[in-house]
Structure formats: C-alpha cells, structure tokens
Amino acid sequence: MSDRVTFMLDGHRIEAYRSQTIMDAAIEAGVYIPRLCHVPGLDPWGSCRVCTVKVNGRPCAACIQPAMDGATVENDTDELNAWRRELVEMLFVGGNHFCMSCEKSGNCELQAMAYRLGVTAPTHPYLAPERDVDASHPDIMLDHNRCILCARCVRTSRDLDGKQVFGFVYRGAERRIAVDPGVRLKDSEADVTDRALDACPVGALLRKRQGFQVPVGGRAYDHEPIGATDGEAEGAPDGASDGESLEPAASAGREAS
C-alpha cells in the first residue's frame, strides 16, 4: 500500500501522505482553503467550519478530513464561499465585535476573512451576548466579547508553551474560554511571553499596553487579503497571530505538563 495519495482540488492534482488532512496537503501545495481555527503545527480542531469543502459532493471540514485517494474536492466555488460567508457572519453576530474600537483591527483574521469573502454588513440579527472582560492579569487581557472559540490559545498553551492555561467551560451559547486553575487569568500560569497570546486570530487575547503599536494602514491585512500569500506566512508582521510560524517546540510537548 503506497503511503501517497492523490486527489483533485478544484481541478489541481494534489499529492498527500495517507492520513494527511486535505487542509495540510493544500497548504503544502500552496493552495489556500479559508480557515480560522486551523493553524499548521497545531493539532486540528474543526470548530470554525470555515474550511468546509466538498469531498465527492459531501460537505466536510478540510482541516479534519483525511485526504482520500482519487477524491474530487471542491473548494473555491460560489456555493462553498456562500456557506463560508454565513459562518463568518455567525461569528460576528454571535459575539460583540466593534472593529472600529478594537486594537486588533487590520491584524484580525476574522475581519480579514469577512473582507475576503465579501461580508459587509451582517444580514442576521445581532445576538449581543453578555460577556465579560478579564483584565485581572497585569500584562494580558482576555476579552470574551471577541472570542470565536477557536481553541488556538488552548492548543498553543498546551502543545507549544508546555502549559495548560486555557480550556473551555459550559455548553451552547454559554460556552467560553476557561482559565486553569481558577476563574481569572491572574491566578493562572499565563505569562506575557506565552506563544498562546500570539495564536489568537482576533482581539480576544491581547498583551496590555501594546495596542495600536503598528498604525492602522501598516497592518497585516490593510493591503492584502487573508490567504493572498498562502503557502507562506499569512500572519501579522508584528508577530501577532503569526500562525504559520508556530512550529512545535521540541521540549514543550503535551507530556511536559
């Protein structure tokens, strides 16, 4: 049994390792599949669903789905991009995103995804949930209003920082990021140097006193849409949400904690 498989992605032949996900194979081949929760180098999570593709006509999340030999995969189609617009819109109306006053604006992957997909004003009602801001930590701020529950911080803290600062608690609409061991960030092992802080795609997890260091206009997505340079880095130049540079640190495996 060969350990290579081949599939067609929007008409391009893509090679993959057996058990490699469609997402990882596409990234390796330099083809962009929209994604928010997935970051190369972290275990896949599959929560945002923005990477939904059709494999032999059946919708599934590219970041989870292993490549199948001979499969036909649709990605950049009007239909799929319409689903993605719905999902991005849901992320906006499901939280409280006031981009004008958010210091992540311009470096935010959610905002950039909305631009890329052509989401302007949401067509669904705002759910306007009541959410907290945890400003207890001297150097870090966690704003639940902007959190899209992508678990990038959870996985980065666990697998790259060798800590387990973040987790989830509650279900459904109430689901939110939790902090180990207690309720507030200041009681946790979180540190301003944690790579988990760079992993956040939105303005939910921020270093304090660093807002607006890069002026609007010079930010990651001010000139190029998200995914424009895919296969290479797509993250923000100041390091914030520099997803692609997250390589597993040799010493900081899951065993380490």
Binding site: G46, S47, C48, R49, V50, E86, L87, M90, L91, V93, G94, H124, P125, L127, I148, L149, Y170, R171, G172, A173, E174, R175
Partner: peptide, 12 residues
C-alpha cells in the same frame, strides 16, 4: 457549542 453553525445558528 463547539462549532460555529450549531452554537450560533441554533440561537439565530
């Protein structure tokens, strides 16, 4: 509440 469509869509 794990995935976007179900968490937000059921509320919508």
């Amino acid at each position: 509440g794990y995935c976007t469509p179900c968490r937000v869509g059921t509320q919508l």
